[in-house]
Amino acid sequence: MKWYEAISKIDRRIIYLLLTVFVILPFFVPFKIRQNIMPQTQRLFDFVESIPPDDKVVMISFDYTPQTMPECHPMAIALLKHCFARNIPVLGLSFDIQAPGLAVEAFTTVVNELNLKASNYDDSLFYGKDYVYLGWKSGFTAAVLDMGESIAGVFPRDYFKHPVDSLPLMQKTKNYKDVAIAIVLSASAYPEYWVLYPQSRYGVKVGAGLTAVMAPKYYPFLQTGQFSGMMSGMKGAAEYEHLIVEKGYTKKLGRAETGMNSQSIVHLLIITIIILGNIGFFFSRRDQKQS
């Protein structure tokens, strides 16, 4: 077999093996590629940057499922880190039944990591004071509208069954007036409905974190300003991580950034093998023509 026949007939298992190695490699050999930050990610970051500390809450709606976790979970982690670093309280909630487990995990991961580093009481994060997770609610439209009047009316008890009125954070967070921005992390149409109902009625600012497949559909919402920013897919999450590292809020590379490194080199791999295949194809065809 000639060399160019060989490169156009690489066994698929070799490709699979290379691909696996390329995905795993960045986890152990971290490297940095300068991210080109998409304007929508920058806008979301800037918005959170502009919220005064210890004032209004950032509301995060965790609406992703285990399958879309690789894309949306790093967004949640990065957002939580950003808010906590700036002393902005966070209020979590979910409308997707599969989400609460993931939301609790996100909170626990970030809170534990930050509390380990905390040197005194003021630096530490406390449930009920710095963050609250309200849990899951069915009946999305009615619930998001009713929260305009009273959050406690929709969620009388939080996920851990505490009466919501008993939590200090909730005593000062009555309805959307006390919410700086609602950021919806989802793989479905929820962000659209946040714009349609609570925003048009109560003027809530809405941000979004969407899977890469969903994101292109939502560009018009950015143009009109209905979204105050958006992260799209793992790339969006990586950009956000990049921004909080740049600002000095955290030092560690995030999950998404590692993931993006994997993605980048996987893309390079795919591009390379396609080129190899075409070189092989080109030369074999030349042979055929000659003969």
């Binding site: 976790m69 993931g259 994997s262």
Partner: peptide, 19 residues
């Protein structure tokens, strides 16, 4: 091409789970 980007993240998710 666009979907390649969206789907590799699923594989990364499984690898993250294993590692």
């Amino acid at each position: 091409g666009y979907t390649v980007m969206a789907r590799v993240s699923l594989l990364i998710g499984r690898i993250q789970f294993l590692l």
